[in-house]
Design a protein around this nucleic acid. Structure first.
Length: 270
DNA sequence: ACCGGAGCCTGTTAGC
DNA sequence: TGCTAACAGGCTCCGG
């Protein structure tokens, strides 16, 4: 479910209730969610550790602990984090709970169980293979060009590859290609100078719009407090199959590309 | 090195 | 209505 804007929204919402809190215990009923440790080891490692900061890298949330360890969580398709009082009934899809020193619980709910928890010391090493953050100032037109250089796969698939650029998923890939006027089946090596400039601006535009609107609640995604984002009301093409393009008289088309549902305007995108 | 497809999971929706 | 297949905001692994 969540892409860069949804994860960023989650991080921002968790800072107030979690930063400064100390983790006193961990509960889990689906061991595969925790990748780097078994439950007892994890409990031992993070017991009495205070969360000093929460940050985001690509679609990962990073909780910085006082002992120098980093608790890293990926929400994958259906993950959701919330901080609630213990008396709130636990939803059946909650598979991990971090108990905080004020009695509240940081709950990781994940219907499809694709989500993952890691505890790592060295984040540079952990994130080594990820591409650049598209919203950083260092993500320039030249850097985008360099990242796409020599790649022959189609643009849709290229934008989804986290090793090339980090943080873009299915919604924002379709949206960015629309605003750039680039057909999703164009090869990355066919882009012109003008395409690079437009794509660079389009990526920043759609991700910033997604953050401003606090994420796209098209299916399962919700903010930590359970309320919906607003980005679903501002999409140009995603899941708008058969509806009118906002820029011309054509209808939005859907096509499956390398297994991923892709939405585009055949007139505006070439 | 690059690329595409299978697999991981459960729930919802589309199609017969 | 009721069943079955397709589909779902992601990523890793494996083979070509």
């Amino acid at each position: 479910m969540p892409e860069l804007p949804e994860v960023e929204t989650t991080v921002r919402a968790l800072r107030e209730p979690v930063v400064g809190r100390t983790i006193i215990d961990v509960w889990n009923d689906w061991p595969r969610l925790i990748v780097t440790h078994d439950l007892d080891e994890l409990k031992y490692q993070i017991h009495n550790q205070t969360v000093q900061a929460i940050s985001r890298r690509a679609k990962y949330l990073v909780f910085h602990l006082t002992n120098g360890e980093h608790l890293i969580i990926h929400l994958k398709m259906s993950g959701h984090l919330s901080v609630v009082a213990p008396e709130i009934p636990r939803h059946k899809h909650v598979h991990t709970i971090f108990h905080l020193d004020n009695g509240k619980e940081l709950r990781f709910k994940d219907m499809r169980k694709f989500g993952r928890v890691y505890l790592v010391k060295n984040t540079d090493e952990f994130f080594q293979k990820l591409g650049p953050e598209p919203l950083e100032d260092s993500f320039t037109v030249d850097l985008l060009k360099e990242r796409l250089k020599g790649r022959r796969r189609i643009m849709k698939t290229t934008l989804l590859d986290q090793h090339i650029i980090a943080g873009i998923g299915n919604i924002y890939a379709d949206e960015a290609l629309f605003y750039a006027g680039i057909h999703p089946e164009r090869g990355a090596d066919e882009l012109t100078e003008e395409d690079f400039v437009k794509l660079h601006a389009a990526i920043k535009k759609v991700l910033n719009l997604g953050i401003a609107r606090e994420g796209a609640s098209i299916d399962l995604y919700a903010k930590p407090d359970g309320t919906r984002g607003e980005m679903q009301n501002a999409v140009a093409v995603f899941r708008r199959t058969g509806q009118l393009c906002r820029q011309c008289e054509q209808y939005i088309q859907r096509k499956k590309l390398n297994g991923r549902s892709t939405h585009f305007c055949p007139t505006c995108q070439r």
